[in-house]
């Protein structure tokens, strides 16, 4: 398992140029909103001494006075984010089709990326729709009964303690189910690419492979999740101890943030490769 994990990391880095395409798309989309945030802040409180309060640490008064007075200028940006996410959801099917195709077929060029993206887009769209429905179904199945039964739970249990524990335990169960549908989705897409199956057979084959390799795949997912948590922890720790408090630290943190985003893309490639390696028993690629 460790072998697969290490090999997948190495393989993930091989596709750095493809990662760059996805990173650039995401950065451009994020910039459209980020620049607006900059402009609104600059135009509204750009000349205020209140801003210096926000440099060292978060300042509740400055932040809320800004929201109270200029909230109307900020809220449309978050409205745009909603639509942007929706559009990106469709676009990400295209990007994922390209990247997954290259990873599975071991084709590491921009032209292969675009051709794979175009080739698998419609099949992957159907798969995305199918899993989106399952995702909403599972979310509703877990959370609606728990969240709507608070009052009833207080009447049924002696204290709120069991309810809190049900709530806490619901998270691992939820993530377990999400992991299952994620693995199923990846296996299905890999089957379509590798075995040239149609969507129905791809899903069937994906389900079979997911069931067969579920615990192994879950373990690898868990290892990658640990890497991600570790990275996030380091970032938050650095933010807390050093912080974005001067020109230099702001620059360093911007670079760090962008490095994390780029690594997250490669991290996804690594996960795809590890799932493929487990099901194909191919540990050397």
């Amino acid at each position: 398992m460790i072998k697969i994990f290490i090999k997948s990391i190495k393989n993930g880095f091989r596709f750095k140029m493809i990662g760059l395409i996805i990173y650039t798309v995401q950065l451009l989309l994020a910039l459209t909103l980020g620049i607006q945030i900059y402009q609104v802040m600059d135009a509204s409180i750009g000349n205020s001494a209140g801003l210096s309060n926000l440099l060292e640490q978060f300042n509740y008064t400055t932040f809320n006075d800004f929201l109270n007075v200029h909230g109307a200028s900020i809220s449309p940006i978050f409205g745009q984010l909603r639509y942007l996410l929706l559009v990106y959801a469709v676009f990400s099917i295209f990007l994922n089709a390209g990247s997954l195709g290259c990873i599975i077929l071991n084709e590491n060029s921009w032209s292969s990326f675009w051709s794979n993206a175009a080739r698998y887009f419609f099949a992957f769209s159907k798969i995305a729709l199918f899993f989106l429905i399952i995702f909403f179904f599972i979310s509703a199945l877990i959370w609606i009964p728990i969240l709507s039964s608070f009052e009833a739970a207080m009447e049924y249990f002696y204290t709120e303690k069991p309810y809190v524990w049900i709530l806490i335990l619901a998270f691992p169960l939820y993530f377990l189910l999400l992991s299952f549908i994620f693995l199923w989705s990846v296996h299905s897409r890999i089957s379509i690419i590798r075995e040239d199956l149609n969507v129905i057979f791809g899903l069937k084959n994906g389900l079979f492979k997911t069931k067969k390799y579920f615990w192994k795949s879950l373990l690898v997912l868990f290892m990658f999740a640990l890497v991600m948590f570790f990275g996030t922890f380091i970032y938050l720790w650095a933010n807390k101890t050093v912080g974005m408090v001067s020109g230099w630290t702001i620059l360093i943190f911007i670079l760090l943030q962008q490095a994390i985003i780029y690594l997250r893309i490669l991290w996804r490639f690594m996960i795809y490769k590890s799932i493929d390696n487990i099901s194909e028993g191919n540990h050397e690629n």
Binding site: Q26, S92, I250, I265
Partner: peptide, 28 residues
């Protein structure tokens, strides 16, 4: 004015927008 704070929070906003896009990308 020195606009460091604006740069700081704009960078943070961009970072969190990118994270949101990543999450969406991961789901689909």
């Amino acid at each position: 004015p020195i606009d460091l704070s604006i740069k700081k929070y704009s960078a943070k906003a961009i970072y969190w927008f990118q994270n949101a896009l990543q999450t969406v990308g991961f789901l689909f």
